[in-house]
Amino acid sequence: MSDNATPTTPVKTTGLHVGDAGPGCKKVDPIIIADGVKRTFGGLTAVDVAHVEIPRGAITALIGPNGAGKTTFFNLLTGFDKPDEGKWEFDGRSLAHVPAYRVARMGLIRTFQLTKALGLLTVLDNMKLGAKGQSGENLFRSVFPFFWRKQEDDIEAKAKEILSRFKLDAKQEDYAASLSGGQRKLLEMARALMSDPTLVMLDEPMAGVNPALTQSLLDHILDLKSQGMTVLFVEHDMHMVRHIADWVIVMAEGKIVAEGDPHEVMRDPAVIDAYLGAHHDTDLGDDDDPETAEHIHALKELIDDEQ
């Protein structure tokens, strides 16, 4: 594992897979194993993953063109959506029919593409909400502070410690709604840490973040790994993927089309096809359509990476 003192040159974790790198390949120490997970909306198949394993203790990026089913796959893994069929497990325990809140209690914490900071709660309350197993969260005990006062103080100390690491301590009494987009992303990540998760799943952590905050966010993600957590994230920013990911899984049209080390996977013709294919499907007259523009941008980055 890595113990990086200089976060700008992250130490990559290697040797994660068994045999050839490819879609659905075996991992040495998988934390999540999904088998035949399928989800359809009406006639449209959003996710159809035959087999995939997420390596433990590493940073894995889930990439793919828009509509590839990445967010839906996230929702399925975390219990926010139910697949039509399939089975998947986390740390050896099956997650089928497990509601989202139980998944979270098992140590699998996620963030959302559209940040879900709780606007009219203070930053500190946002943090405290993240802590697990609070006895004061029981209605009957909540009336009597002596049941939960001590635990509350501990939680507050921990929250303040994490907030200062994320440089949000000056804001702790402010409403989360007053934070900037990037600060909310930071808060959401910090809040996730309150429960000491084993796996953190980040849905587009860089989307809408002010470039000034990007480096800090990257450092925090690398920091998660150095503390022994596993990270799975969805991202469009290819530079970021190349920079911090130890492993990359590529989805297109609901399927896993490629897997591997970030540098090798970019050379995989299936990946380029996936991005091109997504582009070809759309009407060429729609170039100013934001989605298409994003595909083209992603493709350009891929080609840049190749050179």
Binding site: T78, F80, L120, N126, K128, L129, E137, S142, W148, A192
Partner: peptide
């Protein structure tokens, strides 16, 4: 109390609160 915190969190965004267990 912490109970009230969860309740207010649900008002703001129940999915976020669900994701926190």
């Amino acid at each position: 109390s912490p109970w009230g915190r969860v309740i207010k969190g649900i008002r703001e965004d129940e999915d976020a609160v669900r994701a926190l267990g």
